[in-house]
Amino acid sequence: MDASKQDALTQIITLAKEHDISIDEIGAQIVNKSLENKDGKWLTKLLGYLGGAFIFGGLGLLTAMIWDDLTSATRVLISYGPGIIAFILGIMTVKDTRYEKASTGLFMTSSVLLPTGMFVFLNEYSDGGDAQLAAMVVFGILALQFLLTFSALKRTSLLFFGFLFWNSALGILMERAYVPGELVGIGLGLSILIFAFNVDKTKHRAISPFYYFIGGMGFLWAMFDIIEDISGLDILYLPVTIFMMMASVRVQSRTLLLVSTFSLLGYLGYFTNEYFADVTGWPVALIILGFLLIGISAQAVKLGQKIPKKA
């Protein structure tokens, strides 16, 4: 090793000690820089994704082909095993800055394979016959697993899947407690909206648009179901959607604005068809609806401009 290289290494060690930089962090930077410098980065990525998809597709196909020849224990092992390994690898990669980005993919894989494996286990070893109860137990356990891991590692993907499993378990619990479908929709919809609103204020805000979308859709759909059944009072849906549009500006969510605007447009279609289609003729009703749509979309764009773009 020549003298200049030795000097450089000494300098690196001094700087690392001075700024408390670990060997992993230096390694991660070198790997990331070398990736940035590579030409055809998109091609590498694309081929990487394709390769991954082929491997999973091939493994899935192979499993399906030999499924009937497998024993119960092997079936559980082949479905649950890769899931738990992906989950453990996900945790390990979070702790290693060089592979941090791989953790999301690994957690996503485990979120599919873990429930599959647990359902296979119940199918092979349990003869209760109550599939809904089995689903509630599986999703409940997974919600705990993902949310507890999230509380330790603070990874957004863990929160995303953990909350998804939580709602799956909760929805079944509500169903089994004979909560009417409309109230399941409103209760879960509001709960998800409030969660999205809170998450939006944290560093995990990347998942809030998805939950605003699901929560907003669920809430407005269930509200329409209730109001539609009350004869003559279905006009009450109008203030609900307008309130949601206003709320979307207040919470600064373009996703919620989109959902509530489409919900309002859909409702106007329903309303004109219900009350005006046979009065002065359908074509006139369509013209009125057209003007309303233009007016609402212009208003929605104005409201959208009030919402700042998020990083």
Partner: peptide
């Protein structure tokens, strides 16, 4: 049986046992 399914019950309801 009551026909009161919606997005939330379809996504998270688990199949309407009751």
């Amino acid at each position: 049986y009551k026909r009161n399914s919606n997005l939330m019950t379809e996504m998270f309801g688990g199949g309407y046992r009751s």
